[in-house]
Amino acid sequence: MTGTAPTASRTLRPPPGYRLAATIRPLTFSPYDPCARIVDDTLWWATRTPAGPGTLALHGTGSELRADGYGPGGDWLVAHADAVAGLRDDLTGFADLARSHPVVARLAARHAGLRMPATGLVFPRVLRAVFEQKVTGKEAYRAYAATVRHFAAPAPGPVSLLLPPEPAAVAATPYWVFHPFGVEQRRAETLRRAAAVADRLERCADSAEATRRLTAVAGIGVWTAAEVVRVAYGDADAVSVGDYHVPNTVAWALAGEPRGDDARLLELLEPFRGHRGRVCRLLEVAGVQAPKFGPRAPIRSFARF
């Protein structure tokens, strides 16, 4: 922990009814995320920026948000704090689209203060998304947290957090180092390949270009790319095609069908094009779940391999 005084600060004025905690929840992996924490309506988020490592604190204070940045990347984070807080989120046209379905209309009204955050940073999200590929949430978090702690780079600021690992360090790490973290060779090699081209991924002009570059990396498909650009770019239309739960959730919420496939997912979301990812996020925040059938997926271990 270094640098307890902010290097930069800024006051933001969100719209009436804005909900900070719900908006920035996608920036945290769990309440125990080593890189991020929400405490008393304050987000503490440690990351690596183009200007260097930094920590951003977003404090809710009545009708205002105070953004404090720490470390070499503090200025960069404060300059982008409105995007991180979802205040650059463009809801143009969504109100009209939402009225086309009673469930979406009701959720849009109930969660009107929800915004889509945009971090402007790709690789930290790639790190998480690759670990989430085709495993349970517990497995993914275990791998993510263990990897962050393996590289163990302290973040600046008054709160004890760790920085995500540097892409160069990840690219140079043999795949078998990740095995004790519960990561098999396939995901470890995918992460290493993405880390090797992280500079190119960070230089994308928009979500579409980032999606093209991401899916050009072997092991990264449309699901992983959508998980990345929805948060890195605040892409409100990004749909996680190939997800285990999302097609069922959308089919249940919008059509009363307990199961759905990717084709049905896209069919039901088509009327909301431009905001399809926003609809999925609303369903997630509202806790909508399709009926569950069958056993849960087992948690596996690769530590012995």
Rank of each mutant, 00 (worst) to 15 (best):
A67N: 10
P180C: 15
G242T: 07
P247K: 10
F293G: 01
A196N: 00
V78K: 00
A5N: 03
T136W: 06
A216H: 15
E132M: 03
H111T: 09
T224Y: 05
Y32S: 14
D82I: 00
N248G: 12
T147A: 13
W76F: 10
G157D: 11
P102E: 04
M1C: 04
V279H: 02
G74A: 11
A171F: 05
A171L: 12
G287C: 12
D243N: 08
D68P: 13
P50H: 12
E64W: 06
V103S: 00
Y175L: 15
F181E: 04
A95I: 05
D33L: 03
A290E: 04
R48V: 14
A140I: 08
P14W: 03
A51R: 13
A226I: 03
R192T: 11
T215A: 04
T42W: 03
E284H: 14
P16W: 00
A67R: 04
L201K: 01
L12R: 08
A152E: 13
R200Q: 13
L268K: 03
P271M: 11
R230L: 07
L56D: 13
D96R: 14
P298Y: 14
Y70I: 00
A81Y: 00
R10K: 14
G277N: 06
Y32H: 15
A196M: 07
P50F: 03
P124V: 12
R88S: 13
R149M: 01
V177L: 05
A303R: 13
L162T: 07
G256D: 14
T215W: 02
R125Y: 08
V170S: 04
P102K: 06
L65R: 05
A112R: 12
E166V: 09
A105S: 12
T42Q: 07
R200G: 08
V148L: 12
T28N: 01
A225M: 06
K138Q: 14
